[in-house]
């Protein structure tokens, strides 16, 4: 749940990039940090665990409007995707306002995508959140690997595997090249802002 900073007249929301290890979550955040410098407030913090990282930094979305006269500041987080960091991943997910699930398009990672999505849904449930209700966007990453002739899942297959029931926006991306990274974030911000607006209206 977003927090309200009355002094700064800001609503502080949290967006988490979730997904299997090595799927491109960190690459997404690094690209955003590098490309949208003007909107980044403060440093990117990296908490390194072997083979994986938790990253976060604050981001000031522009052009998405205010909520009841308050600016919206967003903290972007990645979770460590490796299986063994389940507890850390769950902690990062706490009080989340919006989610980007970065799925790996590589065929060999098909099962890992599904396991990670299930893990995310379970962790949300443990916090009393419903995966069907939290603003969520799928990003099907590593689409560029098809050009190199490597076996990747089709967007239709990924939608069928992951998004059949959720029916949330899904976007193709090649985070390494930056393709689709901004669009994914924008879509998630849009949904998150919409959800926050309705929460704050209900709360008024």
């Amino acid at each position: 749940m977003a927090t309200i900073n009355l002094k700064k007249k800001e609503i502080e929301a949290k967006i988490v990039y979730y997904g299997p290890g090595r799927g491109g979550k960190t690459t997404n955040l690094e690209y955003i940090y590098k490309t949208y410098k003007k909107q980044v407030t403060g440093d990117m913090v990296s908490i390194t665990t072997e083979g994986d990282r938790t990253l976060f930094f604050d981001f000031l979305p522009i052009g998405l409007g205010k909520i009841r006269g308050f600016d919206v500041r967003v903290s972007l987080y990645t979770v460590p995707g490796q299986v063994q960091y389940s507890s850390t991943r769950k902690l990062v997910l706490k009080e989340v306002d919006g989610l980007v699930f970065v799925a790996d398009s590589l065929q060999v990672r098909r099962e890992k995508n599904m396991i990670s999505l299930k893990d995310m849904a379970q962790n949300l449930k443990d916090y009393g959140l419903n995966v069907f209700k939290v603003p969520l966007v799928f990003q099907y990453n590593k689409r560029d690997l098809a050009e190199e002739g490597f076996p990747i899942l089709t967007v239709e297959q990924l939608d069928k595997d992951l998004n059949r029931q959720l029916k949330v926006p899904s976007l193709p991306a090649s985070a390494l090249k930056g393709d689709g990274v901004g669009a994914t974030l924008k879509e998630c911000l849009k949904l998150t802002l919409k959800s926050l607006k309705s929460q704050f209206q209900e709360g008024s």
């Binding site: 960091y85 902690l91 009080e95």
Partner: peptide
């Protein structure tokens, strides 16, 4: 490998700040 290397005091402080709700 060790699961988590020792972090600087500043990062540890940030963890306390960011993950205590």
């Amino acid at each position: 490998a060790p699961a988590a290397p020792e972090m600087t005091a500043a990062v540890q402080d940030l963890i306390k700040e960011k993950f205590a709700f």
